[in-house]
């Protein structure tokens, strides 16, 4: 269980411009982009857009923590727009799976977490078929280690709506796994 309050520290109150924070926190933004299933080209486009917005609004947030929140919000919105532009999650899923298949080197080694490719393929497709807002909430919670209250600020919804989305998303994933008879 991650320490979800760890983001709130003294460093967050330090004065910093958006651009400075962007350059330091690209890895965190990449996690959001990767969680939404974007490839390298999309990632570059999105990060460039965010960097330009950061440059234009450099002095908008005085505190580092607020600047980071702003950058995450812009990245989240940009990712959601990108998905909307694609319109079909299924098409994106197929594209990703094809890419994976082409890049695959074949059989998994015995030490590779014992997760078989069928389970991954199943969940990969399910993940990308999820409602984009539910997916984003899962990404922020389980890949960016943010708590419900932090996510609610980013997505402009109540913490209870965040918890609902998380439950809904987890249920969909678990039920999909159960349906195929895959067990831990």
């Amino acid at each position: 269980m991650p320490d979800t309050n760890s983001h709130i520290d003294e460093d967050n109150l330090r004065e910093a411009g958006l651009l400075e924070v962007f350059l330091q926190e690209q890895d965190r933004l990449k996690r959001i982009i990767a969680g939404m299933g974007m490839g390298a080209w999309d990632a570059e486009d999105i990060l460039q857009d965010v960097s330009i917005k950061a440059l234009k609004n450099n002095d908008r947030c005085k505190e580092r923590g607020k600047a980071l929140g702003w950058l995450i919000k812009v990245t989240v919105n940009r990712c959601i727009t990108e998905h909307r532009r694609r319109k079909s999650f299924a098409a994106k899923a197929l594209e990703l799976l094809d890419r994976k298949r082409r890049g695959s080197k074949g059989v998994l080694g015995p030490d590779e977490n014992a997760v078989c490719s069928e389970e991954k393929t199943l969940l990969h497709t399910t993940l990308l078929e999820l409602d984009r807002k539910v997916l984003m909430t899962l990404v922020l919670r389980y890949f960016c280690d943010m708590n419900a209250s932090e996510i609610s600020e980013i997505l402009n919804i109540t913490p209870s709506a965040v918890r609902n989305r998380i439950s809904r998303g987890r249920e969909v994933l678990a039920k999909k796994l159960a349906k195929r008879g895959v067990r831990p």
Binding site: K30, R31, A34, G35, G37, M38, K100, N113, V115, E119, K120, L123, H124, L127, L138, V139, Y142, F143, R170, E171, L173, A174, K175, K176, L177, A178, V182, R183, P184
Partner: peptide, 18 residues
Amino acid sequence: GDLQQSLNIVQEIWRENL
């Protein structure tokens, strides 16, 4: 078990994408 296993796999997919 399904809830935990599905999250583990999804996190692995995310790490691969990253």
